[in-house]
């Protein structure tokens, strides 16, 4: 899977039973789960803030962001830090499974049934690896869309994001 070929490198990770991947160039580093300070009254998909070498970095709970069932982090949980346009942002995921090289032709456009289940704007493609289907996500797009909703939720208590788009 990690063989060198024509293609790009991805970090694959798990949320529940679903597999996802970020392209590796967007990723800054990966941390085991560590102290995340809760920020009350923030948008619900934000887990809190963590100390990244003296900087306060926002951690997004990707499960909540994708409206999957909530779950307590465990020893397999990881925080994937992505360099967003304004600041680094962490994504909390259940488990990082592998670093993989997907040949460009194995990454296909988003089929309609996926476009229905999660907002298709995030999804840059579906990678087929034998039996496995891995959804390739653009983390910056996730943040862009989240920022809009955060703005709308701003001021309201608990900023419950009702996904009003």
């Amino acid at each position: 899977m990690s063989g060198v070929g024509d293609g790009r490198q991805y970090i694959a990770f798990r949320l529940g039973r679903e597999e996802y991947a970020f392209e590796i160039s967007t990723i800054r580093e990966i941390f085991p789960i560590q102290d995340v300070t809760k920020v009350h009254r923030s948008p619900s998909y934000i887990e809190g803030v963590m100390n990244l070498r003296g900087r306060l970095v926002t951690v997004v709970d990707l499960r909540k962001r994708f409206k999957l069932e909530a779950r307590e982090p465990d020893e397999n949980s990881r925080i994937i830090v992505v360099e967003a346009t304004d600041a680094p942002v962490g994504f909390l995921v259940d488990e990082v499974t592998e670093v993989a090289n997907f040949a460009d032709e194995s990454v296909e456009a988003v089929p309609a049934y996926v476009a229905d289940s999660i907002e298709s704007e995030y999804v840059s493609g579906i990678a087929k690896l034998g039996e496995r289907l891995i959804t390739v996500i653009d983390p910056l797009k996730v943040l862009e869309l989240s920022a809009d909703e955060a703005e709308e939720a701003g001021g309201k208590s608990n900023g419950d994001d009702s996904g009003g788009r």
């Binding site: 923030s42 003296g54 306060l56 970095v57 304004d86 600041a87 955060a150 900023g159």
Partner: peptide
């Protein structure tokens, strides 16, 4: 004083960290 990023800047009751 360190600032929070813009996703948290509007949070009521918190001005930074």
């Amino acid at each position: 004083v360190k600032s929070l990023d813009r996703r948290l800047r509007r949070t009521k009751g918190i001005s930074g960290g």
